[in-house]
């Protein structure tokens, strides 16, 4: 089986400092990979390098494209990478304001990716937007409201709908539940888990919240100071941490 994403020796430096160093892993179709670590450990840098928002200094990011098979994303031309960014890839930002157009209605937000790939039938776009709002538990009556009139949890769900509407195969999520209160977090996680399983998505979830990866991720990668210090199945890493830092991380979680 070809991995969907094959990352080899990915390195990003900020001048003399290391963003992330020599990261290698494979992601297979339908798999969810969690990346955990403390603030400044390089997990967001890594995610941005993978998603093409930052240019890494070294390494390869080989994605199994629908048309041409495995290709290095970093050597693709900009139009190809953008096309990938609005069809097969999706990026869910921590702050929904970064991922949504706040002055455009919910329907327009969901429809943007469709229109970007050439949908020019208003009725069809609206129908699809309504369908997706339903899937993320937003009432269809709010299709013409702007995201600024939505609560934080709804904004985040809207951002997810907007990203998944083109049926991507790989979703990058940067702290998808950050800034939400726990009950809203729980519902959002439930929703994401359902969507990921039903659509057979592969996802890379960056978070510092171990509960999130426990629920979502099949495999886990622990980062510290830009390096990957431990990898394994989620339950294995969380229940039997090997590296000293991972042990510290796991034992730092408050038990209620």
């Amino acid at each position: 089986m070809t991995p969907l994403l094959n990352v080899q020796g990915l390195t990003k430096r900020y001048g003399g400092r290391i963003g992330c160093a020599d990261v290698s892993f494979q992601l297979y179709p339908g798999e969810v990979l969690g990346i955990v670590g403390e603030s400044g450990s390089g997990k967001s840098t890594l995610l941005n390098c993978l998603a093409g928002h930052l240019a890494p200094d070294a390494g390869e990011v080989i994605f199994d494209t629908r048309s041409d098979g495995p290709r290095d994303v970093l050597t693709m031309s900009e139009p190809e990478r953008r096309m990938l960014g609005r069809t097969d890839w999706a990026f869910v930002h921590q702050n929904p304001r970064d991922g949504l157009r706040m002055r455009i209605s919910a329907g327009g937000n969901v429809g943007e990716r469709l229109m970007a790939v050439g949908a020019h039938h208003y009725g069809a776009i609206r129908e699809k937007a309504t369908d997706w709002l339903g899937r993320v538990e937003i009432s269809a009556a709010r299709i013409d409201d702007r995201p600024s009139a939505f609560s934080g949890g709804m904004q985040q769900r809207l951002q997810i709908a907007r990203n998944l509407v083109t049926g991507p195969r790989l979703v990058f999520m940067d702290e998808p539940t950050g800034g939400l209160d726990v009950s809203v977090q729980a519902r959002l996680l439930d929703l994401i888990r359902g969507l990921v399983r039903r659509m057979g998505l592969s996802a890379i979830v960056v978070t510092h919240d171990l509960a999130v990866v426990r629920l979502l991720a099949d495999r886990l990668m622990v980062m510290k100071d830009g390096h990957v210090i431990e990898t394994g199945l989620t339950d294995q890493v969380l229940d039997d941490p090997q590296a000293p830092y991972t042990q510290l991380l796991v034992s730092s979680v408050l038990q209620v």
């Binding site: 609005r86 157009r101 455009i104 327009g108 229109m115 020019h120 208003y122 013409d144």
Partner: peptide, 14 residues
Amino acid sequence: DYGLMHVKLYEDIA
């Protein structure tokens, strides 16, 4: 990359 132009027209109709 002209998807955004149609978003504007979509908003008009909506």
